[in-house]
């Protein structure tokens, strides 16, 4: 709040009401409802709902399929985060270094940000096409009979590749802006103190970039968990079958296709807890960030 704020009451009330109404109706009501119905079995908005306590949760933990999905989600998030961060960092460092064409490179490397995940997934289908896809042929060269949508590992690989590709621009933008905000004088001091460019990068540039990297770590995990829904949905071509999927996709699948509302709600609550955990972690990092800058 500003130190000399206005004292009126009605204007700020009127200004706040739209936002508060929207989040009350579309955030707090649904979130509370999810929490409540995760303790019920059957159709919670009919009359047939029974209170089952934590049963939905315990049955989740005992469910092998759920464990498998959770396992895939973790692996998927780690791979997507690692590769998209690594490639983006490499490109950002190079784009920060070159003098000619820096602006052009930036444009070329970032515009994919604007492509919607399911559209990226659709492009992926063509690249991984069974008979004509260039990447299918590439994997076949190594003797891997790559079958998108049929072979679990093949589908998983395709999902990771498309998700990484789609996420590189965001990471690139943040890394580049982080690099550009390192003061010129610091770099010049490092040039005088250290002859090796690699040494300078790991000892000076990278530590200064660490806050950005931490922030991006969270962003990327969130991305892998939630925003890749469209990619996954497109790549399994509407047939979940034996295909790999993330936790969010399973919430959707059980809730909307399987009509297991209690189970799906319990999964939602588990996801909420996961996100809260990530956020707490992020806030602690944000606090640390202040020391860096």
């Amino acid at each position: 709040m500003k130190r000399a704020g206005f004292d009126t009451i009605w204007l700020p009330m009127a200004l706040l009401i739209p936002q508060l109404m929207i989040i009350a109706i579309f955030f707090y009501w649904p979130a509370g409802w999810a929490l409540q119905s995760s303790f019920f079995l059957q159709d919670p908005f009919g009359f047939g709902s029974t209170f089952v306590g934590a049963e939905n949760y315990t049955s989740l933990l005992g469910n092998d399929q759920y464990k498998r999905v959770a396992g895939f989600t973790i692996l998927y998030s780690v791979l997507v985060t690692f590769f998209s961060l690594a490639i983006a960092l490499l490109l950002a460092v190079k784009a920060d270094k070159v003098i000619k064409g820096a602006k052009t490179y930036r444009t070329l490397l970032m515009w994919v940000y604007a492509i919607a995940p399911p559209v990226a997934g659709f492009l992926g289908i063509l690249f991984f096409d069974q008979s004509t896809g260039p990447l299918t042929k590439f994997f076949q060269m190594f003797g891997w009979d790559f079958k998108l949508g049929v072979d679990y590992n093949a589908t998983a690989t395709a999902m990771v590749i498309v998700a990484v590709w789609k996420q590189i621009p965001v990471n690139f933008i943040f890394f580049l802006s982080g690099l550009q905000s390192i003061p010129r004088s610091v770099r010049e001091a490092a040039m005088i103190d250290n002859r090796s460019a690699t040494g300078r990068f790991w000892q000076v540039t990278f530590p200064l970039l660490a806050p950005t990297a931490f922030f991006l770590l969270i962003i990327n995990i969130t991305y892998a968990l939630f925003d890749t829904f469209g990619i996954i949905d497109a790549l399994m071509k509407g047939e979940p079958g034996n295909n790999p999927m993330t936790l969010v996709y399973k919430v959707y699948l059980d809730g909307f296709r399987g009509n297991d509302l209690g189970g799906s709600s319990a999964q939602s609550v588990v996801l909420m807890a996961l996100v809260l955990l990530l956020t707490v972690f992020q806030f602690r990092l944000v606090e640390r960030r202040i020391h860096y800058t």
Partner: peptide, 9 residues
């Protein structure tokens, strides 16, 4: 809590 997490409710 992003929308995806509370999609069903």
């Amino acid at each position: 809590l992003p929308l995806e997490v509370r999609i069903l409710p």
